[in-house]
Amino acid sequence: MSVLIQASDVRYRYDDGTLALDGVDFQLEEGETVALLGPNGSGKTTFVLHLTGLLQGSGEITVCGMPVRKENFAAIRAKVGMVFQDSDEQLFLPSVLEDAVFGPRNLGLPADQALAHARQALEQVGMAWAVAKAPYHLSAGEKRRVALAGVLAMSPQILVLDEPTTYLDPPTQRELIRLLKELPQAKILVTHDIAFAQALASRAVFFERGKVAALGAIDEIARRYDWRL
């Protein structure tokens, strides 16, 4: 198994002085799914934003062998597909198809190829029927799937999903789990939902006050930190 993401001693302090990451070490291997667990404000989202250079602190991060530096941002962002917690922040173009094409076009693909990628990704997430719809007319689950399609259309090697179950009802969550299981990419799931993590991830990393407090089997971590309802 090759290492896709290697992070060591990542530190980050927000402008207001809050220490959000305090020496985080992390590794993601090809094909694996890792759940990032931990209380609100423990640094999970801040950490994943570092993976594509959306936030930059100190420490070393390499993605697919490339150090996360400005000159590599475009290549790294093409490899790491991020699905954000709030789909409304991600979907901003007038139609579902145009939004799904946004990423591939930014990668420099010609319009016809970008269109083919976008249609295939929408098909993959079961949203091909909505190509002409305005994203704001969709339900929360549909928006999530379109946001995922927008990322899949860029053919990333790694998927990062930040709180993917937010606003989703249980049947839609089940559908999302089924869909994510079918995707071959390595995945990082930032979640509070232990059942969701168990369904998809092979191991968990528990964040606490900006540090990796524990890593290992999800059951064991959930038990140790009393991380169940």
Binding site: L49, T52, L54, R77, M82, F84, F102, V151, M154
Partner: peptide, 13 residues
């Protein structure tokens, strides 16, 4: 800020 990040994450230049 969230919107800007999500656009940058999809290689918006």
């Amino acid at each position: 800020e969230g919107i800007e990040r999500s656009m940058l994450a999809r290689c918006f230049d």
